[in-house]
Design a protein around this nucleic acid. Structure first.
Lengths: 347, 347
DNA sequence: TTGTACGCGTTATCAT
DNA sequence: ATGATAACGCGTACAA
C-alpha cells in the first residue's frame, strides 16, 4: 500500500485532478454531485493532501509562525495561548515551531519561512544575539515578544519589533522595594550569559538600585546559576540558594531573576530551617501563576503577559498590512507584593 | 527581491544545480575548489533550501515525529527533554508538532507523516478516542507515551504501542494509602471527560479502593473540574476546592488526579484558614517537580517519566527495525509521601 | 567530477 | 463546470 495521491483520488472519482484540487481548497465552481462523490472517495481512502507539495505551489496561505526557544519553559504557556487566540481571530493559522537549545533560531526561522508561506514571525524567548544578519534575510516581519529591545543592536532596531517590559528598570524597582524594607544584604541569583540575556539585564537593574543609593555593589552577593542544568529552573534555584546559605555571608533578602528560581530558593531556605520572610525575604520576577499559589505567596514583578501577547499580534498585523513600521513597545511591570518579603528586622 | 533558489546559486557559482545539490547534501564527490566556491555563494546570498521541495523528493530522512496535545501542560516538559536526547542518540531528527485543543490529532499526524518523511510517531497526551481508524492509515509505527493501553480499544491493541503507568491501579493505591491513614471522607477532584480519559481512569481507581473495602462510593464526594477553564490547571484546582469547602460536606482528605490540581487545592485550603495536612490531607498524581518543592511537599504518585520516555523511544526503534511488534508496557508508579498527608485525627 | 532531464504531489492558468 | 498541463524547488539516475 503505497501512498495515495490526488491523482488516485481523481481516477477513483472519474474526474481530473484539477477538480479534486478545487474541492480540496473549497472553490465554489464545482458541481454538487461531483463534489459529493469526490468527498466520499476522499473519506473512504483517508487521503490527506501532501502539505509539502501544497506549500510548494501555493501563493497565499495566511500563516503566522511562532518560534519558541525551549518548549520546556512554562513561562511561555499563557503567552502562546493568547497569541494563538488572537491569530485565530484574524483568521490566520498559527504554526508553532520549537527550536532546541542548540538550534540556531535564525536558521529555523528561515526554514520555516519558505517551507510554509508565512506572513510574519513571532519570536518567543531566545534572542537576536549574533544572528541578526540572518534574521534580516527573512522576507516577512519579525516581532520579538517578551524580549526587550535592549537585547538587540541599535542598528537592528528598525528591522525588528519588540514587545516587552523593561527588564533592567523593573529589576531596579524590585530591588529598591527590598531596600525600602530595610534590606541591605541582598543577594541576587542570576544567569551568567551574554550581555543581552535577561539574566544580565536584570542583574544590571539590581546594580542600578545600589548605585543610585551610593551603596557599593558587592560582587560576593551575586550568585550565578549552575551552567550544567537548566538555567532558570526550580532545581537550579534550589541548588544556588544552598550555595548562598553555605557561603557564610549575611543575607536578609534574595532577588531571584525568575519566579521559578524563587520557588527553588524558598524551598532551600525552608529546608535549611529558616523562615520566609522572617529570616530571609525572597522575591522573583515574571509573575508566573505558581508564584500566586505558592506558600508563601511570592513577591515578584508581574509581566503583563496579556497585554504583551495581544500587542505582539496587533503590532505584527499592523506591520504586515503596512499600517506601521517596526516599533519597540515597553509595558510597565507591576510590583506584586506577596508574603515572601517583609521588613528587615533590626538586629 | 524574489526568493532565491538552487538554480540561482548554480548560476552564480557557474555550475549545474546537481553540483549545488551535492554540496547541500554533503556528498563527497565534488571538487574542493568548486565546493568552496558554492559554499561562499550560499553564505553570501543567505540561501536556505526549500524544505517542502526537499521532502517532496527525499526518500530517506531519519525523522521521528512527536505530537503533543496542548503545549500548555508542563507535565510533558521533562518527557520531551528525554525523548529528544534519546532520539538524538540514535542519530535521528526530532520533529515536534503541537496540536491545539480542537485539532484532530490524527489529522495532524497524517499531515506530518507525508510532509516530513517520518519513520515513526510518538503521541504525548490526548488519546486515541474515536480516531483510531484514521491513525491506522499511518504507515509508520505509533507509540503512545504516558498514555495507557486502557484508553485504546481492544481491537487496536495490535496496531499501536503504549508506555505508561496503570492510572487506575495507581489511583487505587494512593486512595488506599489515604484510607490506611484513617481517612474515610475522601473527596476526589477529577475531570468529566470520556471513558478513556486519564481523569476517568483515575476516578475508577478511586472507586475501586472503596469497593474493595466494601465502602460505599459517595457520588457527592466526586468533584468535577470546571469545564470552561483548562481542566488540569492550578486555577481549576483552586476553584474546585473552593466548591468542596463550601459544599458543607465533611472532608478530611482530597485526592486530586493531577499535581497541578493539588497545588491549587492546597492554596484554596490554606486561604480558607485550614491547615494542611492537619485539617485536610491532600494528594496528587504525576510526580511533577513542583510537588517536591511546594510547601508542604505534596504526597503523590510519581510516574517514572525517565523510564517511560526512554522506553518509548527504545520500543519505537525496535518496531521500526522490526525487532518487535507493538507492545503495551506498564511501569509501576511510586508512592511519594510528602508532608501534605497525615493520619486522620479521631474526633 | 560535472551536467541533463525527469519526477515528486499539488495548484494555477488556460482551454473547453 | 470540468479537463489538460505547466510550473513550484529540489534530488537523483543517467549520461558525459
Amino acid at each position: 500500500m503505497s501512498k495515495i495521491t490526488i491523482v488516485d483520488i481523481a481516477k477513483m472519482s472519474g474526474v481530473a485532478v484539477s477538480t479534486v484540487s478545487r474541492v480540496l481548497n473549497g472553490h465554489p465552481d464545482v458541481g454538487q454531485k461531483t463534489r459529493e462523490r469526490i468527498l466520499k472517495v476522499i473519506k473512504e481512502t483517508g487521503y490527506v493532501p501532501n502539505d509539502s507539495a501544497r506549500n510548494l505551489k501555493r501563493t497565499d496561505a495566511k500563516c503566522i509562525g511562532v518560534l519558541i526557544k525551549g518548549i520546556t519553559n512554562p513561562f511561555f504557556s499563557p503567552v502562546i495561548d493568547i497569541i494563538e487566540k488572537e491569530i485565530d481571530r484574524q483568521k490566520y493559522a498559527l504554526i508553532l515551531r520549537h527550536a532546541s537549545a542548540d538550534d540556531d533560531e535564525a536558521d529555523v526561522a528561515l526554514e520555516l519561512e519558505n517551507e510554509k508561506r508565512l506572513r510574519g514571525i513571532i519570536f518567543l524567548g531566545g534572542g537576536a544575539e549574533q544572528s541578526a544578519d540572518k534574521l534580516r534575510q527573512l522576507k516577512v516581519p519579525v516581532v520579538f515578544s517578551t524580549i526587550g529591545s535592549s537585547v538587540i543592536d541599535e542598528k537592528d532596531m528598525a528591522d525588528f519589533s519588540t514587545v516587552s517590559v523593561d527588564d533592567r528598570l523593573e529589576a531596579k524597582h524590585i530591588t529598591q522595594y527590598l531596600m525600602n524594607l530595610g534590606h541591605k544584604d541582598i543577594a541576587i541569583i542570576t544567569e551568567a550569559m551574554g550581555r543581552r540575556s535577561v539574566g544580565h539585564l536584570r542583574l544590571e537593574g539590581y546594580k542600578d538600585a545600589f548605585i543610585e543609593r551610593d551603596m557599593p555593589v558587592r560582587e560576593d552577593m551575586i550568585f550565578y546559576v549552575d551552567q550544567n542544568m537548566e538555567h532558570f529552573s526550580i532545581a537550579n534555584g534550589y541548588r544556588t540558594t544552598q550555595r548562598i546559605l553555605s557561603s557564610g555571608h549575611k543575607v536578609t533578602a534574595v532577588f531571584c531573576v525568575t519566579d521559578l528560581l524563587a520557588v527553588g530558593a524558598m524551598r532551600a531556605i525552608s529546608d535549611a530551617g529558616l523562615r520566609i520572610p522572617e529570616d530571609i525575604s525572597v522575591c522573583g520576577f515574571d509573575g508566573m501563576e505558581i508564584g500566586r499559589y505558592y506558600n508563601p505567596r511570592l513577591t515578584t514583578i508581574k509581566q503583563p503577559l496579556d497585554q504583551i501577547s495581544r500587542e505582539t499580534v496587533k503590532l505584527l498585523f499592523d506591520i504586515i498590512e503596512s499600517r506601521s513600521s517596526h516599533r519597540h513597545i515597553v509595558f510597565p511591570g507591576e510590583l506584586s507584593i506577596g508574603e515572601s518579603t517583609i521588613k528587615r528586622y533590626e538586629d
